[in-house]
């Protein structure tokens, strides 16, 4: 019973944020920053969208193990960026996020994604793009969590998800680039941005597929091994 109430409270907080806080901030932003209202709104909404998801973690009764697994997976995805630094676009971040989501749930996936963005930017440079990366990688994990069962069963679906996730990441980041640049959403500029990053996107999507296919088997075994060895 107690748990149900707290879940409900959490929901209420989320609704308050989604239906009250976001519109208020958008309205205020449009008033003060007349010229740049869209840039401001996209940034504000992105940050606010991350908050409820990050806060739920605080209230959760998660085990120490899950805590550590998120830390390990995040560190792996960041350290992996260095391992494959020579090949542009070849990054294990998305694959790690998806795998975390598949084996430990969407929330763990979201957190791994969002934290990977923050932590890797400690090394590669923070900026206004950080919240967008957080949201993009986080959502990739969250959605993978919902699709955990089919993704675990079918390698075709998994590969497909890798491609879609790679494309989605580029598309989300390019929206930000375009809106931030001249505070409007010009389709021509957006398409140009997408095209210019196409080789990178293709590489990225391909690397997702490679990583996912290479790691889904071994990682499953490893999880099993850890669980039997330590009886958790």
């Amino acid at each position: 019973m107690i748990k149900k109430i707290s879940v409900r409270q959490k929901k209420i907080i989320e609704y308050v944020i989604i239906f009250l806080l976001i519109p208020t901030i958008i309205a205020l932003g449009t008033l003060v920053f007349e010229d740049r209202k869209y840039a401001f709104i996209t940034l504000a909404v992105t940050i606010l969208a991350c908050i409820p998801l990050l806060l739920t973690f605080e209230k959760r009764t998660d085990s120490t193990r899950k805590l550590i697994i998120i830390a390990v997976m995040t560190a792996l995805s960041v350290a992996g960026r260095f391992l494959f630094a020579l090949v542009p676009g070849f990054k294990p971040v998305t694959a790690i996020v998806v795998l975390t989501a598949i084996f430990f749930g969407g929330e763990a996936g979201f957190l791994t994604g969002a934290l990977s963005a923050v932590l890797s930017n400690f090394m590669f440079g923070q900026g206004p793009w950080t919240p967008f990366q957080m949201l993009a990688w986080g959502m990739i994990g969250l959605v993978a969590g919902f699709l955990a069962r089919p993704l675990r069963k079918s390698k075709i679906l998994l590969s497909l998800y890798g491609i879609v996730a790679g494309a989605a990441f580029s598309m989300i980041m390019d929206i930000w680039t375009v809106v931030w640049y001249d505070d409007s959403f010009q389709p021509a500029l957006y398409i140009a941005a997408l095209l210019s990053s196409l080789p990178y996107t293709i590489m990225y999507a391909a690397s997702n597929v490679v990583f996912l296919l290479a790691m889904i088997g071994p990682i499953g075994k490893k999880m099993e091994r850890i669980q039997t060895k330590y009886g958790i």
């Binding site: 990050l54 390990v72 995040t74 560190a75 260095f82 934290l115």
Partner: peptide
């Protein structure tokens, strides 16, 4: 100050990153 648990996870991850790079 907002989410101490998440900050702890981040601190742990930050501790792991150099360790992992060294091991790699």
């Amino acid at each position: 100050t907002v989410t101490p648990r998440l900050a702890l996870v981040m601190s742990m991850a930050l501790r792991y990153i150099p360790l992992f790079r060294m091991q790699v």
